[in-house]
Design a protein around this nucleic acid. Structure first.
Lengths: 256, 256
DNA sequence: ATACTTAGTGTAAAAAAGACACTATACAAA
DNA sequence: TTTGTATAGTGTCTTTTTTACACTAAGTAT
């Protein structure tokens, strides 16, 4: 613990940590059943009782811009780089840090725990399987947690999570971003379930298929599912070109 | 000038100015012809040649949250309070301040002109007529400028403006926010022109009317236009209740 | 063999969007 | 006072999109 703080302090000297701005990341994952969020716990002691969870986040360095900082944090936590990452906004209540617990946590990780910090939130979508969770300077223990089971988080992180989720849903209606939660090859059934999980409603299978196929961003593969106790589905992947174009322009309406 | 900086410094003592976070506001107005944006010029000298324009903005105080700070800035500039105001996001490139001009400007208004400042942008919609422009600590001269004529702004303000405009357009497709740009009583023709101006395209009059009336948020008034050289239009106003409900829930699709 | 599970497919009805043209009424200009 | 000009206000038909809905196919498990 001391070890790590010392290393952080050293890095601060070198790189110039900016103690006024932090980044927090809402990292969504999909386990083919429901939406999950990556949360961290304080300290190494994993006694889950009573130890509050938080979103992964860190102060920024003075020589990196906000997007870079978010990408760095995500990279330190997962080893991934350049994945889907979008700013949610800035959160800066002077009284963001409410409980004694929060204060204690802050004292353990910050040089100036009393300083006002404005945090810039990002949300990210990534394939859960493809992603090992690493220990990092700001997260000694990280885990996936079903979105629906998260009722409490440290600081103002629950607000941030709610805002991020609602941005995700809004964006899903105009951009083909859901794919970022799936592996390279996936089935239409998985995509269907993903949309149902994010939008929290049943979607008619045939209508969903018709609509998603009309976007013309999917290529059918020959390969089929194996080892499933039902008729195997054919895998699909993106048509990269059309997918990219649609990602940029968006579409008018993809709601159900 | 010195006067003003001194006053600012005094206030800093009292209230605690936070020198690391600023707010910038993109204030849209509609003159029944086109979209306008409120810009300020540096200093009192209004020699418009060569003097760069910027978005109104200021550092935040340590005891106010971001929304409050944006509201304060808007209030200092227009005298208005509680108008439509929405966060666009945080902008924090370490090299936001590029040109010598920018640096000079900064030196004239900031105690620590070299410090890295992350700015949080907001956009606002307000009725242009209803709004006198006041001198304020951060804007000795302010003026409306047609959006289309703004090709250059200080710092990264042009990026901020572009992002704000695109957020405005996206939001217009799901929420009835355009009304905020109009006076209490307005005509369907004015609303029609407003949508055409924001979306930058012609919209069929009859289709527009049908669609907007179906939202059921407008009440027809008896009062008619006077003094116009054509058939006078009846004024309308909101049905407050339905309007509020729709503002919160939004609608799926109001694109043209 | 049978049960179970998900894959995969089409159609008809309803709703929404898009295209399109004329009359009405005020003021201005001649 | 006539004529021009500018915007208000209105309905229908066609095309597209959305919605609701049920069965067969192909694998595994028992």
């Amino acid at each position: 613990m001391e070890e790590i703080r010392k290393r952080r302090d050293e890095m601060m000297m070198k790189r110039g940590l900016n103690p006024h701005i932090s980044i927090d990341c809402v990292i969504f994952g999909f386990d083919f059943e429901q939406l999950n969020v990556l949360v961290i716990r304080r300290g190494v002691d994993k006694s889950k009782k009573k130890s509050r969870m938080a979103l992964p986040g860190d102060l920024i360095y003075d020589d990196e811009n906000l997007d870079e900082a978010a990408d760095r944090i995500l990279n330190e936590l997962t080893g991934l780089k350049g994945v889907f990452l979008e700013q949610v906004g800035a959160f800066g209540d002077p009284d963001r840090i409410k409980t004694d617990d929060d204060q204690e946590w802050l004292r353990s990780i910050r040089k100036k725990p009393e300083a006002r910090v404005v945090t810039v939130a990002y949300y990210s979508l990534l394939p859960m399987d493809n992603c090992k969770l690493l220990a990092s300077s700001f997260a000694l223990s990280a885990e996936w947690k079903p979105l629906k089971e998260i009722n409490e988080l440290a600081f103002d992180h629950l607000d941030i999570l709610k805002d991020s989720y609602s941005k995700l849903r809004a964006k899903l209606a105009t951009h083909p971003i859901g794919f970022n939660l799936l592996p390279e090859k996936f089935t239409l059934g998985q995509l269907h379930k993903l949309y149902e999980a994010i939008l929290e409603k049943d979607i008619d299978k045939r209508n969903f298929r018709r609509k998603i196929l009309k976007l013309d961003i999917l290529t059918q593969l020959e390969e089929k599912q194996t080892g499933v106790a039902h008729k195997p589905s054919r895998f699909v992947k993106f048509n990269e070109k059309n997918y990219k174009k649609l990602s940029e322009t968006g579409f008018d309406n993809f709601s159900f």
